[in-house]
Design a protein around this nucleic acid. Structure first.
Lengths: 135, 135
DNA sequence: GCTTGACCTTGACATGATGGGAAGGTGCAG
DNA sequence: CTGCACCTTCCCATCATGTCAAGGTCAAGC
């Protein structure tokens, strides 16, 4: 199987497959005499694993660890769970940050006429016009 | 005022001030005879504006527009509100994505023993063991 | 056998916001 | 005058991904 077929079979772009190989996330693929990369069923499983992990937002570093655990039959599930929990906490932290920003902006927007007049609490806030607008 | 003082006064790093100047987000600062950048009160206001906008998660492109509106006395507040609303929607979309990923992972984690045994639904899911685990 | 088109190779560059560091000039205080 | 803190520019790195270019390869059709 060539890289293009592997790409469409796993949903990982050919570009990213080469990239993952280059950074050592996956083992270098076999090569034909002409230098084409060749992929077997095992490689496809690995690539699919990586794609699913990325879909869940894991970082490359985390995926590296998950792959190692996956390939280790003596792994402890606690190790996997720890990585997943850490990732969940990271995502929740990001959500809290986003939520804060959304809250602030929605509050400011609620007091912005949104018409032709130039008066705008959003800009006032950004300009440093104090942290409160009405309360 | 030198760049270092401007940086600590506004919370924008010297590095970023130079960067913002280079990409044309802010006007090139004045220079001393020796080539040092010089900042006045107006420049500090602009930098603070940029920092507050970044704190609210606006992209450089959005900040560029907000800055233009801020400096335009004839602006319509509707324009500002539109940018803010677009940004809020982007953030909410990101939150939904994160929430989905968190849901999935928490669900899988809940069914992972997290002990010394190798059995782990998280890895099974990543390996392509089907999208459901128990329901 | 030769052409053509689809595919492969490597390599470089871009994003976006930020940090780090090197090499060299400047300014001030002692 | 020396030393240190600060400034300058320039290059490189992150992270995941895309795009583009120049060139090699393969298979099919004639």
């Amino acid at each position: 199987m060539n890289i293009g077929e592997a790409a469409s079979a796993t949903g990982v772009s050919a570009k990213m497959i080469r990239h993952y190989e280059e950074i050592g996330l996956i083992r270098p693929a076999g090569r034909t005499g002409a230098g084409y990369r060749v992929y077997g069923p095992k490689d496809l499983s690995t690539l699919s694993f990586v794609r699913r992990a990325r879909d869940l937002g894991f970082s490359i570093a985390q995926i590296r660890d998950l792959l190692a655990l996956w390939q280790d039959r003596d792994r402890a599930s606690a190790d996997v769970k720890r990585i997943a929990s850490a990732h969940v906490e990271e995502m929740k932290a990001k959500m809290r940050l986003l939520e804060e920003m959304v809250q602030t902006l929605e509050h400011l927007s609620a007091h912005c006429h949104g018409d032709d007049r130039p008066d705008c609490p959003i800009l006032e806030q950004l300009a440093g016009g104090g942290s409160e607008c009405c309360a």
